[in-house]
Simulated scan of single mutants.
Amino acid sequence: MTRLGDLERAVMDVLWDTVPATSDGVTVREVAEALDGRELAYTTVMTVLDRLAGKGMVQREREGRAWRYRAAASREAYIAQLMLDALDLGGSRDAALVRFARSVTGTEADVLRAALSAQAGLASDTPGQAAESPDRGLTDRVESSADRASRAGLADEAAER
């Protein structure tokens, strides 16, 4: 996966932050307006969106004479793919994973443990016993663990005061 340049990242941030996955997308003008602090020409934003479409980062649909754009995948999916690509750079994926695991915070480790546990549970389910939406179940369990960890962190902060 290609890493994004600064302007490409800013455009993707607009799409990720302002365009729900269920929407029809946004026009070049709407993206340019959302990037108002950058004072970019309309054609510059159009070129960036065209290049992002060519890279498969955005989807576009014709609406009259204009295009409507939306992110092809979530920010989380993009970041996860970057992490997987980074693991492929080195010689030992295991060593890189261990190093990464040792660098995360306690809360992040809790989230990873919950995700791995949920994934292991899904892998051991028989096809007939699997949840209707395995990804949703995994997301719910990970979010639940993250919520618990967050509450624990807030309780720790309150205790320190």
Rank of each mutant, 00 (worst) to 15 (best):
M1L: 04
R3L: 15
R3N: 15
L4W: 11
L4E: 06
D6A: 12
D6Q: 10
L7I: 10
L7H: 09
E8Y: 01
E8Q: 02
D13G: 04
D13Q: 05
L15F: 05
L15P: 06
D17W: 03
D17L: 08
V19R: 03
P20N: 05
T22M: 13
D24H: 09
G25C: 02
T27W: 01
E30N: 03
E30G: 02
V31G: 04
L35N: 02
D36N: 05
D36G: 10
G37A: 03
G37Y: 06
E39I: 05
L40A: 02
V45T: 09
T47K: 13
V48R: 00
L52V: 00
L52I: 00
L52R: 00
A53W: 13
G54Y: 00
G54W: 00
M57C: 06
M57L: 08
V58H: 00
V58C: 01
Q59W: 08
R62C: 01
E63H: 09
G64E: 05
G64K: 05
R65W: 15
R65Q: 13
A66S: 10
A66E: 14
R68P: 12
Y69P: 00
A71W: 01
A73E: 15
S74R: 03
S74Y: 03
E76H: 08
E76Y: 10
E76F: 11
E76Q: 12
Y78S: 04
Y78G: 03
A80V: 13
M83V: 11
L84N: 04
L84Y: 08
D85R: 04
D85Y: 04
L87I: 01
D88E: 10
D88L: 04
L89S: 08
L89W: 12
G91T: 06
R93I: 05
A96Q: 13
A96V: 02
V98M: 11
R99E: 15
R99V: 11
R102L: 15
V104G: 11
T105N: 08
G106R: 07
G106V: 01
G106W: 10
T107A: 15
T107C: 12
D110W: 14
V111L: 15
A114D: 02
A114N: 02
A115C: 08
A115S: 08
A115T: 04
A115W: 05
S117L: 13
A118N: 04
A118T: 05
Q119E: 12
G121N: 08
L122R: 01
L122I: 03
S124I: 11
S124F: 10
S124P: 05
D125A: 11
T126R: 15
P127V: 02
G128L: 10
Q129A: 14
Q129F: 14
A130S: 13
A131R: 07
A131F: 07
E132K: 10
E132W: 11
S133A: 14
D135H: 09
R136H: 15
L138P: 05
L138A: 06
T139H: 14
T139C: 13
R141E: 08
S145W: 07
S145Y: 07
A146C: 05
A146D: 07
D147S: 11
A149C: 06
R151T: 02
A152I: 03
G153Y: 09
L154M: 12
L154D: 12
A155D: 14
A155H: 12
E157W: 13
A159H: 09
E160F: 11
R161Q: 09
